[in-house]
Design a binder for these strands. Structure first.
Length: 441
DNA sequence: TCTGGGGTCCTAGGACCC
DNA sequence: TCTGGGGTCCTAGGACCC
């Protein structure tokens, strides 16, 4: 058994890396505010609702992830923590720079962008003895080219590379932000230092369950067999997880740019909304945004769902939960990506679910049953009008892309925007707006 | 007063068919 | 009067991720 394991590590092919940006949103803010380099920083979610990115310094002060801002406001002020509303234009742009850097280093085909601040790399071409220095090279280059600090974890499977990454982050000085698990001993050691709740793929529910079984760290979990996992850990999902922990790849590298199967646009309102008109405006705006995403991947949607969430009273001691969602959907006669053809049914759905007298705190649109857009080439048999509509859509997308802030809107989106979210502490969009460029004095 | 906004995958169970 | 068993497809909802 051990021999087998050793042999596998000796071959050392199939190594994967995860590159993960440190406190990504905070780091983005700091790139343009060097004065904040060593200072505690946090970034808030949309609507300034809760804290979603925390610098190490703020972490040390005791700020925790996902805590509601209104509860932390006083503490933040008292401790001089710098606070930003989220600025997704900036983060999206910085993300692209980081990913482009990775692609330049190791080749586009070896990069799987996993989220805005993470990418898996296929390390097959890297010689085993060079893994450490190569990983360090990646880290240093990204930092030099973009100003964003990253951590790198390398192992035979995605789950193990996440384990490595997490430990390198926790111990930045000793590891220099890089950890390679290339021997059975190193893997065992890393697993012993990882609690089950910190394993990628184990959420709150399963962590509680595992602890009841007496399984507390990742090493114990890795020793469970697959049949046990099938029964007790969510079927095939659990089986994959155990395999990965044992060092057998079960979650493969994926090709980039898989089209979305569902596209949503939803927001909390800045303050609760009662009028149907306001909800319609919001839903029309979300529909436009979702349709843009749809066209960007050259798809059309066959089903549109609209939902609203009424505001509900909650007792002070209650654990936060979302209220009951009220939704309705309709199957369109023909899949479409034309904003107008989506807004019309969306408005009817709003009328279906809206109740006079209710206070609403959130609404959203979900497009599903997504198929490739058959009319994308300009259909010879389609009416001229529908081809013209497509041209119009292209123009709107292009103008909005260059000017941003939805320079062109559909009339139904309204101009008052009583429902618009709060965003009081946003930093300038340094990299995507000419009039907000960094000023050098 | 005030708790984000996306996504994915899987399973169970109902409807339907032969 | 009797009312099986197996397959497929779809949907809602759960769990998880960042």
């Amino acid at each position: 058994m051990l021999k087998e394991l050793k042999a596998r590590y000796k071959k050392k092919k199939n190594m994967k890396a995860i590159v993960d940006c440190n406190s990504f949103y905070c780091s983005c803010e700091r790139v343009f505010r060097p004065d904040l380099a060593e200072k505690p920083v946090v970034v808030l979610s949309n609507n300034d609702g809760c804290i979603i990115s925390i610098s190490d310094e703020a972490k040390k002060l005791g700020v925790t992830m996902a805590s509601p801002y209104f509860k932390m406001k006083k503490f933040i002020a008292e401790n001089g923590i710098e606070t930003f509303s989220s600025n997704y234009n900036l983060y999206g742009d910085m993300s692209r720079r980081v990913m482009d850097t990775l692609k330049a280093i190791i080749g586009k085909e070896n990069v799987e962008v996993y989220s805005v601040d993470e990418a898996f790399l296929c390390m097959d071409e890297v010689r085993p003895e060079a893994l450490q220095s190569f990983a360090k090279h990646i880290k240093d280059t990204v930092e030099q080219w973009t100003g964003i600090k990253v951590s790198v974890g390398v192992a035979t499977t995605k789950v193990l590379s996440k384990v490595a990454n997490r430990l390198s982050k926790k111990n930045k000085i000793a590891t220099q932000g890089v950890m390679i698990l290339n021997t059975p001993e190193k893997v065992t050691d890393a697993l012993c230092k990882t609690q089950v709740s910190d394993v990628w793929g184990v959420g709150r529910k399963n962590a509680e369950k595992l602890i009841k079984f007496g399984i507390e760290d990742a090493y114990q979990l890795s020793n469970m067999n697959e049949e046990w996992a099938r029964k007790n850990l969510g079927g095939v999902v659990g089986v994959r997880l155990i395999k990965e922990l044992k060092g057998t790849p079960a979650i493969m590298m994926e090709d980039e740019l898989v089209n979305k199967k569902m596209i949503a646009s939803t927001r909390m309102f800045g303050s609760p909304v009662t009028s149907m008109q306001d909800i319609k405006e919001a839903v029309a705006t979300y529909t436009s945004r979702a349709a843009e995403k749809l066209r960007r991947q050259q798809s059309a949607a066959g089903v549109i769902t609209v939902f609203v969430v009424p505001k509900e009273e909650m007792l002070a001691h209650e654990h936060f939960r979302h209220g009951p969602t009220v939704s309705a959907h309709v199957t369109l006669p023909k899949a479409t990506s034309i904003t107008n053809d989506l807004i019309k049914p969306a408005m009817q759905l709003v009328e279906q679910i809206y109740k006079q007298g209710n206070l609403y705190k959130k609404a959203g649109v979900i497009l599903s049953a997504i198929v490739p857009d058959a009319t994308i080439q300009g259909n010879l048999f389609a009416s001229e009008a529908s081809n013209n509509k497509r041209m119009l859509m292209h123009m709107i997308d292009n103008i909005n892309f260059s000017m941003r802030d939805d320079a062109l809107k559909f009339a139904s989106s309204g101009t008052e925007r009583n429902w618009k979210m709060r965003q009081e502490l946003r930093s300038p969009r340094f990299t995507s707006r000419w009039n907000e460029l960094c000023e050098v004095k």
